[in-house]
Design a protein around this nucleic acid. Structure first.
Lengths: 215, 215
DNA sequence: GTCTATAGATAGATAGAC
DNA sequence: GTCTATCTATCTATAGAC
């Protein structure tokens, strides 16, 4: 509180510059991978030298940690809100899928890092929460699917475990090709995707032609 | 041809030891990623020292190159055979999906490397063929889907480009969790996946209950 | 908050003995 | 075909000047 003037923040020496650097590092981690991104890369992108980064963060891991923690906290907060609304399996699934695609849109880099680097990062003790989040994710999805099978919203012969993996993977891997600036919005994609997952791509003989957003 | 006795091979100083080392490197590349796997890691796994690896290969890149080349040649050979059979869009799609899951089963490491490392490797000139293979893949899938829409096998309102990405991703990401030794065979999984992609997970009111393998 | 300078570790790769 | 020994480059991180 003398020469380092700061806006109100949550404990670290944060504020704008810090956030700026984190966003930058996040973009590089997402594009090139955590291991392949060097501290020098990040510094260069920020127009400073590598040593200067250590004034803001104490390690490269710290940066990834901070990025993932805040993202996952927010994401799972939203998931919990959805579940609490008690919309029934089908609407809940639609809402969770929509939220996930929105995350791909609004937090593209964070999703990419979570998808591509979690397996590597989880080996470090400080990233143990990544395994917990995955378990939480599993619980969220299989609950929705199981209840749907029970209530008759979903096919009775569904392999819940396999379907969970299918949905989880397809939702998240969109991060590999989705461009936030593209012509299709996250909602468009969520809608098309739900069309496939719920009704399939095969032509119907008679019923339910195209589905429209259930918003 | 003096002290280095070799079985008939295709140009390099190949034979069993070479193949052994390649398989080993492939496993590590698949598990930890290309960049995170050091030459020393590979050597240690083989019970030799890092310098000794350079008797067999002239670089780490060469190893990945050789692994991917032979795998992709074989895979796309099979794809071409399927297309040549002219089975119609739906059966072709089923066969291509089945083949892909078989690849996840039989060439697990290779698929993982192709999925996880292609984006990084393609930046090196020697790996330019990875981009070509991706284009070939795109052509294969969109042809099947477009023809299916044309003939009425698939929904008329399908976004072919988007559906292509979903199916492609769906098939390949299984490599992240599929264990060749697990209880479900590649065929079982292909069948379940086709069930979802073709008919969706939503319960039907009346028609077509569960599908059975068409292979 | 950034720079200079550098320590200390580890990476890919090479040369020659065995 | 493997080992010993080592070069060179690059990486994360630190210390202190400005």
């Amino acid at each position: 509180m003398s020469s380092t003037k700061q806006t109100a923040d949550s404990g670290h020496g944060s504020s704008s510059r810090r956030a700026e650097l984190l966003a930058l590092a996040g973009r590089l981690f997402a594009e090139r991978g955590f291991k392949s991104t060097t501290v020098r890369d990040i510094a260069e992108e920020a127009g400073i030298l590598s040593g200067s980064l250590y004034h803001h963060f104490d390690s490269k891991e710290s940066m990834a940690d901070e990025i993932l923690r805040s993202f996952l906290d927010e994401l799972f907060g939203t998931y919990r809100e959805i579940v609490a609304r008690d919309l029934g399996p089908r609407k809940t699934l639609e809402a969770v899928v929509a939220t996930s695609f929105e995350a791909v849109h609004n937090h593209h880099d964070e999703v990419a890092i979570f998808q591509n680097e979690a397996k590597y990062l989880v080996q470090f003790p400080r990233f143990a929460y990544l395994a917990e989040r995955n378990a939480e994710f599993h619980e969220l999805w299989t609950s929705i699917l199981s209840e749907g099978v029970r209530t008759g919203a979903f096919r009775a012969d569904l392999d819940v475990e396999l379907t969970y993996r299918f949905i989880r993977d397809t939702v998240w891997v969109a991060v590999h090709w989705y461009k936030p600036a593209g012509s299709l919005s996250a909602d468009d994609i969520a809608d098309e995707y739900l069309g496939i997952v719920l009704d399939g791509i095969a032509a119907r003989r008679g019923r339910r032609p195209a589905r429209k957003s259930a918003g």
